[in-house]
Design a protein around this nucleic acid. Sequence first.
RNA 1: GCCCAGAUGGUGGAAUGGUAGACACGAGGGACUUAAAAUCCCUUGGCCAGAUCGGCUGUACGGGUUCGAGUCCCGUUCUGGGCACCA
Length: 943
Amino acid sequence: MEYNFREIEKKWQKRWVADETYKVTERADREKFYVLNMFPYPSGAGLHVGHPLGYIASDIYARYKRLNGFNVLNPMGYDAYGLPAEQYAIQTGQHPAITTEANINRYREQLDKIGFSFDWSREVRTCEPGYYHWTQWAFQKMFGSFYSKGSAHPIEELVAYFEKNGTEGLEDVAQSEELTFTADKWKAMSDVEKQQVLMNYRIAYLGETMVNWCPELGTVLANDEVIDGVSARGGFPVVQKRMKQWCLRVSAYAQRLLDGLDTIQWTESLKETQRNWIGRSEGAEIEFKVKDSDKSFTIFTTRADTMFGVTFMVLAPESELVKELTTADQKAAVDEYLAYVKKRTERDRISDRKVTGVFSGSYAINPFTGEANPIWISEYVLAGYGTGAIMAVPAHDSRDYAFAKHFGLPIVPLVEGCDVSEESFDAKEGIVCNSPRADVKPYIDFSLNGLTIKEAIEATKKYVREHNLGRVKVNYRLRDAIFSRQRYWGEPFPVYYKDGMPQMIPEECLPLELPEVDKFLPTETGEPPLGNAKIWAWDTMTNKVVDCSAIDNITVFPLELNTMPGFAGSSAYYLRYMDPHNNGALVSEQADNYWQNVDLYVGGSEHATGHLIYSRFWNKFLFDLGVSCKEEPFQKLVNQGMIQGRSNFVYRIKDTNTFVSLGLKDKYDVTPLHVDVNIVSGDVLDTDAFRAWRPEYETAEFILEDGKYVCGWAVEKMSKSMFNVVNPDMIVEKFGADTLRLYEMFLGPVEQAKPWDTNGIDGSHRFLKKFWNLFWGKDAFAVTDEEPTPAELKSLHKLIKKVTEDIENFSYNTSIPAFMIATNELTSMKCTKRAILEPMVVLIAPFAPHIAEELWEALGHKTSVCDAQWPAFNEKYLVEDTVKMMVAFNGKTRFGIEFPAGADNATIEAVARAHEQTPKYVEGKQIVKVIIVPGRMINMVLK
RNA sequence: GCCCAGAUGGUGGAAUGGUAGACACGAGGGACUUAAAAUCCCUUGGCCAGAUCGGCUGUACGGGUUCGAGUCCCGUUCUGGGCACCA
């Protein structure tokens, strides 16, 4: 009987739907296991062979866990809000909801063909009101919370504190700016003033941030959309502008985000990426007084040990201190410099790192030396980090060094024996000297000379603390997340504005649904697309959305026009899968307590500093609220590597329509052009197909080598524009879903990036045919009930051991060969015994579920193979008939002596000693211990 | 510049410190066939030897530890990734 994969796969995919094979519910009698894939954004291009890689890997694990008796949650859904759908809408007027729906349907169709064990009854879509209800709800909770002493608290607690104490004694509170006021002053504030104060503490807050603003386009641009100070699209001028935006106080959670990394099983590199992103640095804030003035300012440094090497100070151009400290004679120069800096974008600063700066005219007194150091202004100091002001130690910081050299400022080395004539000495090792300098009368009674740098840092911090010169401070690079987007296709904020202050619409009125607009572009007055919505005002009397014309600022108010960014909807979706149809809560306590958190999360590493940070932050907040019972959402994370495309190139001679073969292209001036990989076979171009491919190539001429046109190739991202996309539907149609699944796993380690090469797929397909033929004779089912032989049992148990270990370690690429070897062995032994073949079906079920179901049914089972039991491994079948003993001779390993299987250590040792050759081969060494490794060899421990 | 990961045949890739290159692709040869497809068998790191057995060499490079190193340690080169005027 032939292996008819098309029929088999269709049959079982239908059966799974009819029987609800993959539907799960909370079951107290079974241990849970939660497998999750990063849900996809359904793009218009559909899936290519790279997309399902992670889904297949996690599906194998999910099925394996189920066969081991776990109650497995393996859901799937769609990250449905996003820019491509909106841009398509702007170009065509097609509503994003319609294109998104169409794309989702296409994705679903493609996914269904691959045979995943998803519980589709739990599907979520971030753009549906029933889902974003809880995105909005979480936002409101963040608005209603502040962060203090390591967790989120209701803002009412802070209000109560202010009523009683003002800011007096308020400690360890995350805030945008340090405020001080008394309880009386608080009580005297108007409602709006109080709201403004509270905004300083809320976890979701309206804050002023610097953005690239393009007035002509009426929108904020990302840094990569700005080139040379003008917009990439249209070439309109772009300015740095402070804008009011919704922000999330992610920075408050920096330490917890860092600490949490130690409790989860992610790859070291991913954790490292997040650590870099959070960027914790421990240092000190030290106060400098301004000479001849009562002003002072604070700098942040991680090198407190270098206080005696400060020769100048630098302020960030955007720092508010610049205005205060610029003297009258320097004003013109400073203004000119500020104008220059304002023109430069982030991008310019990065690409063009020249040393620039201007003297402010003021001096700061170094509290350790008493010296007056000139205060400069330079763009190399960033306003957003630390205090926006630094003390410059040119001898031990390369940036300060470059600045000092450029402007001829003094350089004082502080480490014994270091040479700073050519470059600064940045290393944090060595013995401190010149602190203070021997030739200068000490200003204070304090010396660091003779200490190591580490000791000096600690000693200085201690001194600073004791003498009230500043404080020990931890800084993080992690910034608060900007949460507003001037876009249509995103979650609307459940917010209306009264007296210019944001108000939350009542919780029971959620979700606030996205309104219809007639245009998806920004309005003419530069407002976000929601400004085009006619019915977009909030009536506080009826608690309903009403027509904008009704706005009277008494009972009807304008609603927020921005929408939320992409990461909003993807931050808590894993919780929603636990209880997707709950209208009363994001997730019920009972469902959350059962499913807890994700045991295995699979997705791309490109989300390392986006989704994976935001989601952890979001979940920690929900944990503080008591909504989520686990602080970390994703216990174990596996990054699947990208599957790249293998692109082909043809070489066109410049200004002609003549194409030259790869080997001859160096003789001409050529332009390489991508060519569709589907008309290239083994890097040889089908020239007729090429002429037919596109009209402009109809008249193409070719310069061949050996009668062939050979194409160049490169491994690149798989994408439409590179003409290297391989579609999974085509593979499924030609070879079947089981072959595709097997082959994707066989390509290489899941975590590794690798190019797709369809050629190798034959091997996987052939294997499945051989596997099928184990069970089927020419036309009848061939399985018998005979007793298996030891050799057959050995083949089986070798396989059980290998496959079990591989799945646990996520190295599927090595278990496929194990299947092939076992199948070949059993084929050559003509094994058709049920006791061997039945467990084989269970073993292969996670990898190739369709063929496994078909064979399972043929074996006489009425239930799905999904409910079978994973076969138990028994080591006794693996013991070799004889074991070889290894001896060392002249530094080379030989294999010589054979022992009977099952001999114990004492016997082995006795035989080894009795074997005259052994001791003399091991020069001057004695056998201390002999270790038997079953199925392998004997290790001797020698003395 | 700092941090992380990696480097094995023509290719994808295997190897708890224990016979390097499993398995697959590709390539070459053969069987079956009128032929093709399909299927099956043999060879396939390099060099040498050649009736055969075999020998030498080999996991980016240079050292080290070990009876024994692709694997562990030190240094170098290169590749990929992250962060980056972050003080």
